[in-house]
């Protein structure tokens, strides 16, 4: 049980490290948001659940915390990305796809 929890915490820490690495290395806002949200959500989930496995008395609290991380982190990422797109932050030059052009509400944000 202890070892399983430690392995889960290790996976979480690894993903958190990769997320922070991605924030430094990736080229533009949208890619960095991806690194900063996907990796931290997954990493937090595993780290917190690992703590819950190591200490069985805290398991339900850890489950609640991970549920809230799972709920709030993508919402904040969505809000940040949408605000960046609406205020006209350009995509990286090497980007290959921009699905927001299909939606009329994003139409006048290109030239800013």
């Amino acid at each position: 049980m202890h070892i399983a929890g430690m392995i889960a915490i290790g996976i979480g820490v690894l993903f958190l490290f990769l997320g922070s690495f991605g924030i430094v290395r990736l080229p533009d806002v949208y890619n960095r948001l991806q690194a900063g949200t996907k990796c931290t959500t997954f990493g937090c989930l595993f780290a917190v659940l690992g703590v819950g496995i190591v200490e069985p008395a805290w398991f339900w609290k850890a489950l609640l915390v991970s549920l809230f991380v799972l709920l709030t982190n993508p919402i904040s990422n969505h809000a940040l990305g949408r605000a960046a797109k609406k205020s006209g932050v350009p995509l990286w030059d090497g980007s290959v796809v921009d699905k927001s052009r299909d939606f009329p509400s994003y139409a006048n944000t290109e030239k800013l």
Partner: peptide, 18 residues
Amino acid sequence: KQSASLILQTGCRFLFPL
């Protein structure tokens, strides 16, 4: 000023009391 997206509005309504 633009209104918030559906995701943010739903999340806000769900998360605020919690």
